[in-house]
Design a protein around this nucleic acid. Structure first.
Lengths: 213, 213
DNA sequence: CTTGTAAATTAACGTACGTTCATTTATATT
DNA sequence: AATATAAATGAACGTACGTTAATTTACAAG
């Protein structure tokens, strides 16, 4: 057997991405061999090199795509000229929702950075810095406008990001709380962190009052 | 050369612990070979097996000692019969101070858990759960006594832990803020997360008022 | 002083690694 | 239809891995 019938190269490449993602997240980059990836894909190890020049390139591709997708998703989600408080709550809900749906990508983005060569490492770190900058800018804007009360905007933004991303360490689907419950709890926590009293800035949900059935 | 003069076995064992800790933190458990550890220690690879039966046992030892030391340190630091708010602030400062001084241990405790065999994994996870329980109990106590205003104590405790541990991802010694500055900022953040207004619960520092020089 | 143990050495075990090569076959292009 | 390219295969490369064995020497205990 050589090239199978009905095979498009891009399909195999995506299968390599998916299988590598799961294996890297479960076992760690260094503990995953090209032969393991190949077996998961259903192919011989040498075939992987038709799609990625090295093992490192697979990891790099995964991290780069994840970070770019995250940035793009927020760029689409954000509303320009929104108030800092509204933007903060939007960011909070977005971050939780986006990350909770991609536990493997988030995991390797934090854990496998050190396995990248310096230049690839810097590229990913810059992207992460850019994303963190969105939140920092929201906090700074709210600080300037006086709607937030913050001791230190850079530190507070890191604290909030850590708090939000931390959800991934304990959330399991089918647990006591669904994503909407979690978003709501963290909206409250984040509001308090920046000196907003959440209950006074958000109107109660109408149907909880008007629709008791 | 066989056994060198003036060598105590426990010294070598500790050197193996220290070198492995740094290497694991820098490169990851799977990427570190016994020969690398041996070279860092200044010994041949086979000599490591006089002190640890396998590579996994070195990792397991490091994680277990770290978690046990953390638990012991908090048991010594805590004050029985303290109010929930005082206990919370004590925990906050303790956690930041303790973790910021041990970045490598903290790092591998989060990253290399998956490289443990199931039973070792469970042992470490139980210890972590026990430590997290200290905070959860403080929050529950404050919720019961009415001094805290919390939507969900388990979730809030995980949020707070994530926030505090997150300091390790950005803190570098010699930076803009020293540890005391950071503890103070996070004291404020944590107080707000549980519905305490920090500024009203802590008296202003006297020398900032009385000693303007 | 003898003896047993502890701590090191060198050498070697089989296995697995990332990657390359030559080859074969399916698809795409002209 | 002829040709080039894309996508697979099986075999092999040298290297490194975790661990074990046999041996040598320093220290501790009787």
């Amino acid at each position: 057997m050589a090239r199978p019938i009905g095979i498009k190269g891009s399909d195999t490449a995506n299968k390599i991405r998916n299988c590598s993602l799961h294996l890297f997240a479960q076992l760690g980059y260094a503990a995953v061999s090209m032969r393991m990836i190949a077996e998961a894909v259903g192919v011989q190890a040498a075939a992987l090199y038709n799609h990625f020049p090295t093992k490192q390139d697979i990891l790099c591709d995964l991290l780069q795509v994840h970070m770019q997708d995250l940035i793009d998703a927020w760029e689409r989600e954000r509303e320009k000229d929104e108030s800092p408080s509204a933007a903060l709550l939007r960011f909070t809900r977005f971050h939780i929702r986006y990350h909770i749906q991609r536990p493997d990508e988030v995991f390797i983005s934090y854990m496998e950075l050190r396995n990248l060569e310096p230049e690839n490492f810097s590229a990913i770190e810059n992207m992460r810095g850019r994303y963190e900058g969105y939140l920092r800018d929201i906090l700074s804007a709210g600080q300037t406008s006086g709607s937030f009360s913050i001791a230190d905007a850079p530190v507070t933004s890191m604290a909030v990001i850590s708090m939000l991303t931390g959800v991934n360490t304990w959330y399991r689907s089918g647990g006591r709380l669904d994503v909407e419950d979690i978003e709501e709890i963290y909206e409250g926590l984040v509001s308090r962190c920046v000196g907003l009293d959440h209950s006074s800035t958000v109107a109660p949900e109408p149907n909880k009052i008007e629709d008791p059935v």
